[in-house]
């Protein structure tokens, strides 16, 4: 075994987000129980309006395909209809979240660019939707404190929160890289064809 190969094996053993290890995480969502009945896709509110096909994603994941750069992953509204109704107890929504986690972890994803602003907003202001001056004044008018009693307005606490986020390394992780098809997408033609062709199994080399 060459040094590079040895290193790769070592990495694989360490990083659960490497494809083969990652399947253990997916198995926790019980995807091995899937019988491809289509109950998930049938009632998917996003699937009716876009290309996301939960059954297909579960099937591809089940077959060991690497679908981390698949745009459909980011079209799920996490309504949990599919998970709730799955006759075989597959945690489909959780599987989608696991797939998203891996896509982020591998930096090889295809997620909407705007999502990166959310993470910086969370770190800077401890909120996904920060307070605007307009709302400040409305708050005062209706008898609420101008500034909510929250973490954003507690400098000491905010500092600790930021330390926690830095320790978790989440900002770095999300900002790391967006490759996938090469560009992050801003506005997506949601009716596009599936971005994963069958037979791409074991392709899984990251572009790094």
């Amino acid at each position: 075994m060459s040094e590079a190969e040895a290193k790769k094996v070592e990495q694989m053993e360490e990083d659960p987000y490497e494809l083969e290890q990652f399947h253990k995480i997916l198995e926790d969502s019980k995807i091995l129980s899937c019988v491809q009945c289509g109950k998930c896709t049938g009632g998917c509110p996003a699937g009716r309006q876009s290309r996301i096909r939960i059954r297909e994603l579960v099937h591809l994941a089940h077959e060991g395909h690497d679908i981390k750069d698949c745009k459909e992953l980011w079209l799920c509204t996490t309504c949990y209809n599919c998970q709730e109704r799955c006759p075989k107890g597959v945690d489909t929504t959780e599987a989608i979240i696991s797939l998203r986690n891996r896509a982020i972890r591998k930096g090889d994803h295809n997620f909407p660019e705007i999502h990166t602003t959310a993470i910086t907003s969370l770190r800077d202001q401890a909120d996904g939707f920060p307070l605007s001056p307009d709302v400040e004044s409305i708050r005062s008018v209706i008898g609420l404190p101008k500034h909510p009693h929250d973490l954003a307005h507690d400098p000491e606490g905010l500092k600790k929160f930021q330390a926690l986020m830095d320790d978790l390394g989440i900002v770095e992780l999300v900002m790391k890289k967006q490759c996938g098809e090469g560009k992050p997408w801003k506005y997506v033609d949601i009716k596009y064809k599936p971005s994963v062709a069958r037979g791409t199994k074991k392709e899984g080399e990251s572009n790094e």
């Binding site: 996003a46 996490t78 997620f111 909407p112 999502h115």
Partner: peptide
């Protein structure tokens, strides 16, 4: 139609 990051990420779908 807003959840799961769709509101911001895939507005048209939302």
């Amino acid at each position: 139609g807003a959840g799961g990051g769709v509101w911001s990420g895939a507005e048209e779908l939302g």
